[in-house]
Design a protein around this nucleic acid. Structure first.
Lengths: 152, 152
DNA sequence: GATGATTATTAGCCTTGTCTAACTTGTCGC
DNA sequence: GCGACAAGTTAGACAAGGCTAATAATCATC
């Protein structure tokens, strides 16, 4: 039955769980996944405000491809987390924190997108992939992407 | 209050919801997110079987950085979805479908990783980022990544 | 072959993210 | 200024993915 020996060795350090290098990577990914949706919303809200002067739930729902109640519930969480402010039956606005996050996301998105395009990818696919990839790119990788895109 | 005009125009097509290009991208991302965890598990299970001859829940839990009950529940879903087989208190095995998925994921992982390394990223960061990115890379992008890594 | 440690499972809770159905509010036209 | 329709909210369901605590099975070992 294999009987492999993972007995002693990792008994030290009051870390948050084992600390297998692999486990850390997965935990990082899970952490990133938790923030993805908030980032997508905040980014979209910033964009809507920029383009239309306000962000209405109905437009968020359309762009995100979800129903209005889903948007309402998510906005509740964003408000709770201090990323947006809103009044009942009114448009949504970003807090300073939300605005900062939006800026950061937009930059990341922009860099990833330019990078994919400079690799020779078609615009539609680049947009789709950037949307998924942007949340999982470390600062270091982002810097390499930016450099590559510029150099091309 | 803006009164912007999204009235007619998108009234046709009995599509699955509006079909804003943006919405499609987000729906694609959400779709990908739903499969990520299953892919991570299947990939890891294949790896454990390859290395140790079997995949035990305890090892899966350690590598994934989650608790045993979480693994048990997730394995239940994987079994339900036909990706693995298992008997109570026994190790886990992949079905043919699971094996195919694992192969596919491993290839993708491998390509993304090689790509990031060939960009000049350090191995640890490359591994972490690859773990997050691999699920969001289209076939087309993957081909470009592979070509780039080879050419380097 | 009984027993103690390790491993696996079950039960039960919580949050997130999605939906539909039903209700309330706002707005625009007349 | 009222009535219809669009937009927003609330209620409630459901699945996924995480956890802890408690229970059950396996196994190593003497």
């Amino acid at each position: 039955m294999m009987a492999d020996d993972h007995t002693e060795a990792e008994a030290l350090e009051p870390e948050a769980r084992p600390a297998d290098p692999r486990a850390e990577a997965f935990q990082g990914v899970r952490e990133a996944r938790r923030n993805e949706l908030a980032e997508d919303y905040v980014e979209l809200i910033a964009e809507l405000i920029h383009e239309h002067g306000e962000a209405r739930p109905v437009d968020i729902a359309t762009k995100m491809g979800v129903t209005a109640p889903t948007v309402a519930k998510t906005l509740g969480r964003l408000a709770r987390d201090g990323l947006i402010t809103r009044a009942k039956y009114r448009s949504v606005f970003l807090t300073e924190e939300g605005r900062a996050l939006a800026r950061e996301c937009q930059q990341r998105h922009e860099i990833v997108l330019r990078f994919l395009l400079s690799l020779g990818l078609d615009p539609e696919t680049a947009e789709r992939d950037a949307e998924g990839i942007e949340h999982h790119v470390s600062e270091r990788t982002l810097a390499l992407f930016a450099a590559f895109a510029d150099r091309s």
